[in-house]
């Protein structure tokens, strides 16, 4: 039963009827902090449900800390889970709720209450913990959810969109709490569709889309993977037609469209199959041809485009 891995997923597939939640997922993660990154509907929450034993894989095996998580009370003592949805009791106070969940770990009422109060204070809820949850803001509920997840001092924490509903100050505070948590040698798996939320905690990513693991590694490794993938680039230029013509002659762009801006300049939107090559050669072409360029940016820097490209790579379409 002993394993050096935090998580082992072998050919894990989970179907909801005919809908695929997770598709032939393979991963072996060593202890540490990982970001589970993917757009909405990617299968992040399904994966977390599999890892916390809420769901059984249709095919494949799931092991967490070397054990199967399904109905495993010993493992449940070692993990904490903060789901993406709320599910808090409206009429109960945050303190009573966290106390109950601690008591379910076998802690007696008084120490459970003291520990619950400490954890709620840690997430910035010391002034509001004795109010009914129905009076909490969304941010307060997120903090309370985090408190219940860490109250029993687990070694592995699963967080599903924990920053949802938090204001910038709240995000910074929660990031600090989680960084401290990681600093204590604990492990963390955080699911989000916002890259910079995860970057503040870890540079190890698992990128998933359509229930598949598309890529894993550090941010620079993922960028390297995307270096020569299809992309769109916008260039604000005084001579848009000539620029588009030159780039297409050099086979750096496969299509171009030109838009007139209200402030006088034109924008060339270029579609390329080899973004890396275009970025390398673009400055030379501009200088050589004497173009006046006021702005260059990636037109599709959204995460969804990144995932679409990765999905195409995964399917062998590129």
């Amino acid at each position: 039963m002993n394993s050096n891995y935090l998580i082992e997923l072998e050919h894990v597939t989970r179907l909801y009827g005919t809908v695929i939640g997770v598709n032939d997922f393979n991963a072996q993660l060593k202890p540490g902090a990982y970001g589970l990154l993917g757009p909405n509907g990617a299968g992040k929450s399904t994966l977390l449900s599999l890892l916390t034993g809420q769901l059984v894989p249709t095919r494949g095996t799931v092991r967490v800390l070397g054990e199967s998580p399904r109905n495993n009370s010993r493992l449940m003592r070692k993990i904490g889970f903060c789901p993406g949805y709320e599910g808090l009791y409206a009429t109960t106070t945050g303190l009573d709720w966290v106390t109950l969940l601690l008591q379910l770990h076998g802690v007696r009422w008084r120490p459970a209450r003291e520990r619950a109060a400490d954890c709620l204070a840690l997430v910035g809820m010391s002034n509001d913990m004795k109010r009914p949850i129905s009076t909490y803001s969304r941010g307060m509920r997120q903090r309370t959810k985090l408190a219940q997840a860490i109250a029993h001092e687990p070694t592995l924490l699963f967080l599903d969109e924990p920053f949802s509903g938090l204001d910038p100050i709240g995000r910074a505070e929660m990031t600090d709490v989680l960084n401290d948590w990681i600093g204590l040698g604990n492990s963390l798996i955080i699911a989000s569709h916002v890259l910079h939320e995860i970057e503040a905690l870890t540079d190890s990513f698992l990128l998933i889309c359509g229930g598949r693991l598309l890529a894993s590694g550090t941010a620079s490794e993922v960028n390297e993977l995307l270096f020569d993938s299809p992309s769109e680039i916008e260039v604000d230029c005084a001579e848009p037609y000539r620029l588009a013509s030159v780039l297409m002659e050099n086979e750096l762009a496969v299509s171009a469209s030109i838009e007139q801006n209200s402030h006088g300049t034109d924008t060339v939107r270029l579609k390329t199959l080899h973004a890396g090559q275009l970025w390398i050669q673009l400055s030379g072409i501009i200088t050589k041809n004497g173009f006046t360029v006021t702005r260059v940016k990636s037109a599709d820097d959204s995460l969804q485009t990144l995932f679409n490209s990765l999905l195409k790579i995964h399917r062998g379409e590129i």
Binding site: Q54, M76, I79, G80, F81, Y85, L101, L104, H105
Partner: peptide
């Protein structure tokens, strides 16, 4: 009310 999961991830 989706409160099930908080109890399900506790020992028994």
């Amino acid at each position: 009310q989706h409160s099930w999961v908080y109890l399900a991830v506790r020992p028994n």
